[in-house]
Nucleic acid binder design. Sequence first.
DNA 1: GAGTTTGAAACT
DNA 2: CAGTTTCAAACTC
Length: 575
Amino acid sequence: MEPSETTSDSAPRKLVRQLDFTLVYEDPPHLKLPPPSPPQHSLLPPPSHSLLQLQLNLQSPGQRPWLYSEPQEQQPWLHSPRPKLVSWVSRFPPVQKVPVKVLPVVKSDSPRSKPRFNVESKDTTPKKQKQCNCKNSRCLKLYCECFAAGIYCDGCNCVNCHNNVDNEAARQEAVGITLERNPNAFRPKIASSPQEQRNSKESEALVIGKHNKGCHCKKSGCLKKYCECFQANILCSENCKCMDCKNFEGSTERRAIFHREYNQVHIKQGTSAAVTEVVGSSGYRNHITPKRRKIQEMFSGRSTVDQTVNTNAQYLQAIDRMASPSSSLSDSFVFDQVNSRISGSSRSVLADVLQPQNVKNLCSLLVILSRVAAKTNAETREKIDRKTEAGNFKASVASSAKSLQETKDVRQPVCDDHVNKAVADAVDIANYNRPLSPETLALMCDEQDNMFFGNTSADGASHQNMIQKSLNSDYGEQERLIMTKLLDVLRELVTLGSIKVPLTDKLANPVTDPLYTNSPPTREREEKLVELLEDENFYLNRGMLAWFAAFAATRYALVVSIKPLFEDKITSNEI
DNA sequence: GAGTTTGAAACT
DNA sequence: CAGTTTCAAACTC
């Protein structure tokens, strides 16, 4: 006997009410959520999108399922007269023999990582049907995930389950009772906001959401999956009545969790090839060592850096962006950068632009630039020496410069090795991964006091002047000028909000880009370098990562390329 | 895998 | 509506 035959004419009032929630099923288009897991047996119309999802799976490829506009005849619950229970029961039989499009599941979840609550995840990857473990609820209360999702239990580990076709009557009654208690019981708990961020790589919707009711967490800090907001990868909102909430934008605890997950995901999936390439084989660690904490503190509110360039929040924001959801990450654990109840700030448009290789290239570029400056400086000194007929010291400087030039090619690999190490360390620092190498520590020493001084407001046009000035200055002055210019560059790395050309277009392949050849620097190349540095499109983001890398590399470059010019002077005590 | 913790749902 | 109990997932060991 068909269920419809038993209920069509005598549908209890409860059941009619049950249909009420179906009327509000259709969210406004701008509030559409990605489809949830496609249940095998969709029983409730729409609130959970399950039926829609089943239909969506039949769509043409590429169509955004959650924006799919159903033909009217396929959504009877949207129209008057209100259909009775029989209507949707018969139209949506419990067992839908519909092919389900299986998308690749990026993250292999542990059995316990599945959502606990009836929430919409931003992960659009269809998941396996939930498998509940109910014992006392007969799977007829919202305690039961399956019931809450509007689907039959199938392959669950539940005991005395009544959420199946054999107990349809009891189930319908339970649905009615539940709806009587809460008409929105089967609706998604997470309401998306009008904003919608889209993963640039996979056009994945990262829907910004807000819990309709809000959570009421007391002990979890809203940073465990006990919290519905956290589990849905959304920030707590003004709807929440939680205590000691740490699930808000800017929360360091939340960020720490994010980083942990980020690293784990990338290790597991091996999708951080570029980073690994730079970092080396040491891999990632999840804990923050005291040393790294110290590094972090270097950029906290105490330092001059922060006072003049970055706030700690900016640093953390940069780290946040560095770990911005890549395609793989967003599949598994999306802490959206855009879901801010405070400012509604947007995710950096540069978030996907900068890659470790870019930083590496930047470092190489700065090394070259320093070499250019060093050489020019030496040549200038040589001219001055000739004019003033100064002594042997100056001649030796020129000789050193020439020697430097001649041996540049030989030294390049060594230099690059150091730079690579510095870059690796920089990446590592930003990721809290491994301690600094001794080389980098050496490069970084004493910099905090020395690098952020003087007028740092030089714009691009003054760069050449600064370089020119450096020609007539001693080592310290030259370092100061270059570092000041570097500071300007890096300052904008952090603050610039847009980029017009992908960095990769600017920092081309070191092998093919003439800028990276080992040939002696020419005026043309030098000008090109300066131009490159001044080009706003050159600037990248994930500020502190680049900052660290470039700084370490430049420091090294200065030491290697310039200091030798004065070694004779130093050894002869002429300074 | 067993026991504990947690917070939503259910109940009073 | 507030307080309590029940429940099952999340978590810990």
